[in-house]
Structures are given as structure tokens and as C-alpha cells.
Amino acid sequence: MTSIKNFKYIVFIFLAVISISCSRADEDADVLSQEDISNIILNVKNDASGISQTYNYTLNSATNPVIKLTDGANYTVTAIFKNGNEDETESIKAAKDEHFLIYDFQGSQINVTREDDESSTRSDGKKVGLITKWNVVKAQNSVSPSLILTLIHDATSVNESLNGSAFGSVEGGETDAMATFSISN
């Protein structure tokens, strides 16, 4: 019988420990999703003139940024992802094997090649697409041309080649961020 009674005490102590060990200091603290992205910024540099132009897509803004491109010109484009003031690009690079960008041009004739350096080249050899070279054949090929840029997370496989109107395609994965930019001459 004594062993039973002892056991009771052990369980009581155990429960007491559970109740006490819950710290509640930060009950009032706010918490926002760290992996969320609030801005997708494209830094578009004209290779000939060396002039850079920045286009910032902000979540929930009323209008899309309009990227001005000259037919026949070449551009080097760097993609930057931000969550508020925090640069998420670095965390994308840190987890580069989980990420891939798809550049889908609707109504523009632009050829995209990926120019990522080591820091954003995946271990399967595929380039994430943070740095790209755009060869503009015809920026305005239809009424309202646009670029849909999609950041894909955790795809089972990725492919850099052109798929329909999109440079890059994936199997599986989910959309982490999606931005629409308008394009004009």
C-alpha cells in the first residue's frame, strides 16, 4: 500500500512541475509571420547604359509597378524579397535548395537566362533566378503586357527551360510569393 501512496506523491509533484514550468512572460507580445514577404523588388539595370531602375511590388497596393523596357536592349535584373524592413533574400539564399523563381511574361517577347552566382545556385545545379539576364525582343507584344513572378517553395523538381510563356517550371511545391509587374516601352 505504501508504494501506492508514494506513487500518488510522485504524480502530484510531477503535475506541480508541469504547472509551474509554463512561462508566460511574453503573453502580451505580438508575433508576425517571419517567412512572409511584403515586398518584391526588381532592380533592372540596362547593360548598355549602366542605368538602374528599381520597381517595388508591395502587397495589397492598388497599382502594379510598370517596368519600362526598350526593345532590343539587354538588362540584368536582380530580385530582392523583403518582409517589412527585413531582407528575406538572404534567407532564400540560405535555403536555396528549397526555392525557385518562375518568370512568366504575358504579352511580351523577352528571353530570360539565369545568371545566379554560387550563392543562389541549388545543389541540383539549377539556378534559383535571383539574378537574370533579359533580352527584350518586343516589350509590348499585346495590349497590356505583364510579368508574373512567382517564388516557389519546396518543389520536388524544377526546370529552367521555357514552358509556354513561363521561364521555369516546377513539379509540386507551393507558392510562397507572387507579384505582378506591368511592362511598357
Binding site: D26, A29, D30, V31, L32, S33, Q34, E35
Partner: peptide, 8 residues
């Protein structure tokens, strides 16, 4: 806990 770094 806010340690989730995700919205509650």
C-alpha cells in the same frame, strides 16, 4: 508562444 514566429 511567440517563438513560433508565425501569427497566432
Amino acid at each position: 508562444t511567440p517563438e513560433t514566429q508565425a501569427r497566432r
